[in-house]
Simulated scan of single mutants.
Amino acid sequence: MKPYISTAEPAGSAPALARIVPFALYLVFIFIADVLSRMGYGAQETRWLYGVKILAVSAALALYWRHYAELAWQGMRASMLAASAAVGVAVFVLWISLDAGWMQIGSAAGFDPRAANGAMNWPLVALRMAGAALVVPVMEELFWRSFLLRWLHSPDFLAVRAAAVSLKALVITVVLFGFEHNLWLAGMVAGLAYGLLYMRSGNLWTAIVAHGVTNGVLGAWIVVTGNWHYW
């Protein structure tokens, strides 16, 4: 009889860390921004920190890229691509609608890219849009859906098929994803939508595309309407 050899990937393993570290870096910069705010630095004075945060997260993703087998392009049918984009737009609509006082935790500092004279700082707008629509969706979907959703189902998360994930694991990630955001209810709706997309398709890119569309459309809406607190 052959001895049993576990293939489980503990949270401290390289595949797990590859999905945790970029997300953890993102949280560290949120903490730094909060500390600077408590020290008296205004949101306008710390806008530069966003670029450093996105650069650090991008560097971490590049460093661990070889561990992301699920990001190898599998191809997406036109119908699936359209469905992902539609989900992304639907989440955007709900995101700006589910903003009643009881649906929020605290208040968001926001990100205002305008100069002191009111002129738009377009490089800052481009930086924020690129970070929110291109980098954040990859980083968050790798952590929340690829890693945590499957890891809660089984420590051997790399062997877990998306469609086989338990309802318990889905609910936990939806709740935690919601409370990661100031708009907690909107966050839960988004987490549920992205999670179900991934579980139904088995392709992480569906969730990434939907997440990217949500953030991209939200960013464009913010710039047009001036609702900077949504950033």
Results as ranks from 00 to 15, higher is better:
residue 142 L to D: 03
residue 145 R to H: 11
residue 155 P to T: 04
residue 137 P to K: 06
residue 198 Y to M: 07
residue 135 V to D: 02
residue 132 A to W: 00
residue 143 F to W: 05
residue 193 A to S: 10
residue 171 V to D: 05
residue 175 V to Y: 09
residue 172 I to Y: 02
residue 185 L to D: 03
residue 166 S to I: 12
residue 175 V to I: 15
residue 173 T to E: 11
residue 199 M to Y: 00
residue 151 W to S: 02
residue 190 A to F: 10
residue 153 H to D: 15
residue 199 M to A: 06
residue 201 S to K: 00
residue 157 F to P: 09
residue 196 L to W: 10
residue 165 V to S: 05
residue 177 F to I: 01
residue 141 E to R: 02
residue 179 F to V: 15
residue 129 M to C: 07
residue 180 E to L: 15
residue 142 L to Y: 03
residue 142 L to G: 05
residue 160 V to T: 07
residue 142 L to A: 07
residue 161 R to V: 02
residue 147 F to H: 07
residue 191 G to P: 05
residue 174 V to Y: 09
residue 136 V to Q: 10
residue 164 A to Y: 03
residue 158 L to K: 14
residue 143 F to T: 11
residue 177 F to V: 09
residue 162 A to L: 05
residue 203 N to T: 05
residue 181 H to A: 11
residue 133 A to G: 02
residue 181 H to C: 10
residue 151 W to R: 11
residue 175 V to F: 14
residue 158 L to E: 15
residue 187 G to V: 12
residue 185 L to E: 10
residue 148 L to R: 06
residue 194 Y to L: 12
residue 202 G to S: 02
residue 194 Y to V: 03
residue 194 Y to W: 14
residue 188 M to S: 04
residue 136 V to W: 06
residue 131 G to R: 04
residue 148 L to S: 08
residue 148 L to N: 03
residue 129 M to N: 06
residue 147 F to D: 12
residue 179 F to M: 11
residue 133 A to I: 04
residue 184 W to C: 13
residue 164 A to V: 08
residue 133 A to D: 01
residue 167 L to H: 12
residue 201 S to R: 10
residue 161 R to M: 08
residue 189 V to Q: 05
residue 199 M to L: 07
residue 140 E to Y: 05
residue 146 S to K: 11
residue 178 G to R: 07
residue 165 V to G: 12
residue 196 L to P: 00
residue 157 F to T: 06
residue 154 S to P: 09
residue 131 G to H: 01
residue 183 L to N: 09
residue 157 F to W: 15
residue 131 G to C: 07
residue 197 L to V: 06
residue 159 A to M: 01
residue 177 F to A: 11
residue 161 R to E: 14
residue 145 R to D: 10
residue 190 A to C: 13
residue 154 S to R: 15
residue 155 P to E: 11
residue 182 N to P: 07
residue 164 A to F: 00
residue 166 S to H: 12
residue 184 W to N: 13
residue 196 L to Y: 11
residue 133 A to R: 07
residue 134 L to R: 00
residue 135 V to F: 06
residue 177 F to G: 15
residue 204 L to N: 02
residue 192 L to Y: 10
residue 151 W to H: 14
residue 177 F to N: 13
residue 164 A to W: 04
residue 197 L to I: 08
residue 148 L to W: 08
residue 177 F to R: 14
residue 196 L to V: 12
residue 172 I to K: 06
residue 199 M to N: 01
residue 197 L to W: 07
residue 194 Y to P: 03
residue 172 I to F: 07
residue 134 L to N: 03
residue 139 M to G: 06
residue 181 H to S: 13
residue 157 F to L: 08
residue 140 E to I: 03
residue 172 I to S: 01
residue 198 Y to F: 14
residue 186 A to S: 00
residue 185 L to A: 14
residue 162 A to H: 11
